[in-house]
């Protein structure tokens, strides 16, 4: 009996992870690294794009990758994680994404993937917290925020 429950639960996690994984990987448009623009159409409030720093007369341009953008490093590591997950190696996949998070602690996509992988692994607590962490750096990226919400909904459903 207990076995059955665990089994069906595991199946559920797998299903969830596949749907959410798909949401996390294919539906979200990939943004390439580009200089920050003064106004971005996706962001409803123009004030949000102001840099967070004490008022200074000149603001330097932003050549570095923005948190919600995908860098080559994270794309590569997340792709490796995907392959590992598909071959059933969840812990290997998690290790790859953790590496991505260490390299880019503000990469909202990497945190999101960590959330979906932990969900697949059945660690609901981590899944929820990583989804929140992803939102922290999502910078108004609606698709990503929605995908994180899905993770959190699933966590709630399974709890």
């Amino acid at each position: 009996m207990a076995n059955q429950i665990t089994k069906s639960r595991a199946g559920l996690y797998l299903l969830v992870s596949i749907t959410i994984g798909a949401a996390g990987c294919s539906n979200i448009p990939i943004q390439t690294t580009q200089p920050a623009q003064p106004t971005q159409p996706t962001q409803p409030q123009p004030v949000q794009t102001q840099p967070a720093r004490p008022a200074q007369p000149t603001q330097p341009a932003q050549p570095q990758s923005q948190p919600a953008q995908r860098s080559a490093v994270s794309v590569q590591l997340l792709a490796q994680a995907e392959t590992l997950q598909q071959s059933g190696n969840l812990s290997g996949a998690i290790a790859q994404v953790e590496r991505a998070v260490r390299i880019e602690p503000r990469n909202a996509y990497a945190w999101h993937r960590l959330a979906t992988l932990q969900l697949a692994a059945g660690d609901l607590n981590r899944a929820e917290q990583f989804a929140r962490r992803s939102n922290q750096y999502a910078a108004g990226n609606r698709e990503l925020i929605e995908a994180n919400q899905k993770v959190m909904n699933e966590v709630r459903r399974l709890q």
Binding site: Q45, V47, Q48, A52, R53, P67, A68, G140
Partner: peptide, 16 residues
């Protein structure tokens, strides 16, 4: 060595 631009959280506005 890297600068610390934080994206503004959604509920924050900058006011002069």
């Amino acid at each position: 060595l890297s600068r610390g631009e934080q994206p503004l959280p959604v509920d924050i506005e900058m006011v002069r």
